[in-house]
């Protein structure tokens, strides 16, 4: 049975798969993780604020994003962002953001909701006395956050942040609905062109597995290494 398969197709397309596909997948994962963590941290700080006009919008945003399927959000942003952009700058025609930019924005905004929940738990894991100590030294809110609370929150949450990033890495494959050539998109194109669906999808699964599994293992190692000495 295995004789009917042609695994050489993988070797022949390796360059395309990784140079085009994987590069995009990793770029999108990296940008969305970076942006998501920054926005997520700000959202978490807003949610924990005692000002209702800061905490309520943040809570609403996080709940909205977490209650909608990612695929729907991708469509939404792709079709809506051009109109919203046009409305903001007052342009009569929709602003062309392009599929790639749209995917980066979408994943950043979507992941921010999840990262914010992680960062909220992280901020709350830092004892209240640490905040008092920061204030007592004369640090203001931003200094206390930036120098005292967030470094500890990040350190406590790195394993979970990375785990979420592994999920993000897998989820980026959904951009194929925007006809973007990410790793899975590239594999899919070759598979259909050469009629080698089984081989290519097996190979794609294997690559995702190896990368995700290795990263999970790294997370486990990190967990033991970075724990703050208390």
């Amino acid at each position: 049975m295995i004789a009917g398969f042609d695994f050489n197709v993988i070797e022949r397309s390796l360059g395309y798969l990784f140079r085009e596909g994987m590069t995009f997948t990793l770029t999108l994962t990296g940008l969305a993780a970076l942006g998501g963590i920054i926005f997520g941290t700000l959202l978490a700080m807003m949610r924990l604020s005692s000002h209702k006009w800061l905490s309520l919008p943040a809570t609403g945003y996080v709940n909205l994003m977490r209650s909608i399927p990612l695929l729907l959000v991708i469509f939404w942003f792709y079709f809506l962002v051009p109109y919203i952009g046009a409305w903001i700058v007052g342009s009569p025609t929709p602003i062309q953001v392009g599929a790639v930019a749209s995917s980066v924005i979408t994943f950043t905004m979507f992941e921010a909701a999840y990262y914010s929940e992680i960062m909220r738990a992280g901020i709350q894991s830092v004892p209240r006395g640490q905040v008092w100590a920061g204030y007592a030294l004369g640090l203001n809110y931003w200094q206390t956050m930036g120098k005292v609370v967030l470094p500890q929150a990040f350190r406590n949450m790195i394993p979970i942040l990375l785990t979420q990033t592994i999920i993000l890495f897998q989820d980026t494959s959904l951009v194929y609905v925007l006809s973007i050539t990410d790793f899975l998109g590239a594999a899919s194109k070759i598979a259909q062109r050469d009629g080698r669906l089984v081989e290519m999808y097996l190979f794609a699964a294997l690559v995702y597995f190896i990368i995700s599994f290795t990263l999970s293992y790294v997370v486990k190692l990190l967990q033991q290494k970075i724990a703050i000495i208390r």
């Binding site: 004892p127 006395g129 640490q130 100590a133 920061g134 007592a136 470094p151 500890q152 350190r155």
Partner: peptide, 10 residues
Amino acid sequence: VFQHFELFPH
């Protein structure tokens, strides 16, 4: 000075 010292552990 606090009961639980509150040095910054990081």
